[in-house]
Computed example of a mutant assay.
Amino acid sequence: MIYELRIYNCLPGRMADLQRRFEDHTLNIWKRHGIEQAGFWTTAIGTSNNDLTYMLRWNSMAERETKWAAFMADPEWQAARKASEANGPLIANASSQFLTPTSFSSVK
């Protein structure tokens, strides 16, 4: 199992729009493509309260590449992204890390 940690640093005032895009569109599109989320978080205390952090669960990097490419090419996703950014971009910066659980991790 591989976990992908993604952190989106939202532009000021755009967090609600980004969360709405996930809740109203992205999660349903992911479900259709077999993309499994492991959780979403906002930063309560830390370096930036404009961060949306989430994790995705993958069986392999090959699965990730195939499913992510299909998601990014999905016309419904492209339309949802375009509509959500009608008033400008939502994200200032995005980062991604791929994590593998240790032998003693509670998450496998």
Rank of each mutant, 00 (worst) to 15 (best):
Q97E: 10
A16H: 03
Q37F: 12
I91W: 12
N87K: 15
S95H: 10
L11E: 03
S60E: 00
H25T: 08
E4D: 06
T42D: 04
C10A: 01
E23T: 10
S96P: 07
T26K: 04
P12D: 04
T100P: 10
I29L: 03
F22H: 00
E36Y: 06
A44E: 11
D74E: 12
V107I: 13
A83D: 09
P12Y: 00
I2V: 07
K82P: 14
R6P: 10
G88S: 11
N50G: 14
A44H: 15
M72D: 14
L11A: 04
R6K: 04
A69R: 11
S105Q: 04
S95N: 06
C10K: 00
S96N: 03
R21L: 00
A38M: 01
D74R: 12
Y54Q: 05
D24C: 06
W41T: 01
W58C: 11
M72Y: 15
Q97H: 15
W77Q: 11
A69I: 12
N28K: 11
R14D: 01
G39V: 01
M72E: 15
L11M: 04
F98D: 03
V107H: 08
M1K: 13
K82A: 14
I29Q: 03
T26E: 09
S84V: 14
D17A: 02
T43V: 09
F22A: 02
I45N: 12
P101H: 13
G88H: 10
K82S: 09
R6I: 02
N87C: 12
Q78V: 15
E76P: 14
T102V: 03
S96Y: 06
E65G: 08
I7L: 10
T47W: 10
S84N: 11
D24G: 10
R57L: 11
M61W: 05
S103E: 14
L18C: 01
R20L: 02
P12W: 02
S96H: 07
L99P: 11
L90T: 00
K82W: 10
F98H: 08
K31W: 05
L18Q: 00
S96R: 01
A69P: 12
Y3I: 01
W68S: 13
S84L: 08
S84H: 07
N93A: 14
T47H: 09
F22Q: 00
I7M: 03
D74C: 14
I91C: 11
N59F: 09
G13R: 03
W41R: 00
F71A: 10
N50Q: 15
W58G: 07
E63S: 04
W30N: 07
R6D: 02
N9W: 05
T66S: 04
G13K: 01
T43Q: 04
Q37G: 10
E23V: 04
D74G: 07
E4Y: 02
Y54C: 09
F98K: 02
Y54H: 09
P75E: 15
A86K: 12
L5Y: 04
K67T: 01
R81K: 12
G88P: 08
T42R: 06
M1A: 08
I45Y: 06
G13P: 02
E4M: 00
T26H: 12
A80K: 14
T26I: 09
